[in-house]
Design a binder for these strands. Structure first.
Lengths: 100, 100
DNA sequence: CGAACATTCAGCCTCGTGGCTGAATATGGG
DNA sequence: CCCATATTCAGCCACGAGGCTGAATGTTCG
């Protein structure tokens, strides 16, 4: 799938990989995924000992990387995973297992 | 494959993901892989505008994460990829695509 | 042996990341 | 309308990561 390593693609890798670099953010992704139909910011923040404001920032990083999307439901925001974006990592990795 | 998320496993993820977080280190992995039979530290360092000492550190990070291994050949060190370790990333990702 | 080469070790400096606290901005219920 | 709730925005601080330079280590060759 990765035909040429365009600047845009490299930027995408950069965003995704550095988003995944922090353990809290990896935990968030797993939690949201296992929650199935999305998770509110509050519920996510409750998982951590951190101040919620800290978690907010992690959520922003994940969203900026395109790994998470949010949707407003009343007075709370529900986050859900963007699988397609996660697949980017798969693409990158695949190189090492595909070609001889 | 990941039965339980043991401390050791989490540490492994931590090492690998943060190693992959830096673009230079991702480039190194790709280059070494495409070189086929390994690559000397010098050849790797030559790819970058950085001072070679900087690249040395990147190589150490990659090796500490288990993604790279080296072997002494005369007065130069040859680095090669450890595919198994890269597969860890695959394991982590698989969760999101495997289970419903 | 001694000089040239390949690579790492040690130490310095800067800047971004990730933690915190305090204030701001919706939104829904009584 | 007003207050409680849910969440983000803004700004502060500290520490580690990643760049640099200079010295050290180990290896081959004449």
């Amino acid at each position: 799938m990765p035909k040429r390593e365009t600047k845009a693609r490299l930027d995408a890798y950069e965003a995704v990989f550095s988003a995944l670099a922090h353990p809290a953010r990896r935990r968030v992704l797993l939690a949201v995924y296992f929650a199935g139909g999305g998770m509110t910011a509050g519920a996510i923040a409750a998982m951590f000992a951190h101040a919620w404001q800290t978690t907010t920032r992690h959520l922003q990083v994940l969203e900026a990387a395109g790994l998470l999307e949010h949707e407003k439901q009343g007075r709370m925001r529900v986050y859900r995973i963007n699988r397609k974006r996660l697949a980017l990592v798969n693409d990158w990795l695949a190189t090492f297992f595909r070609e001889p």
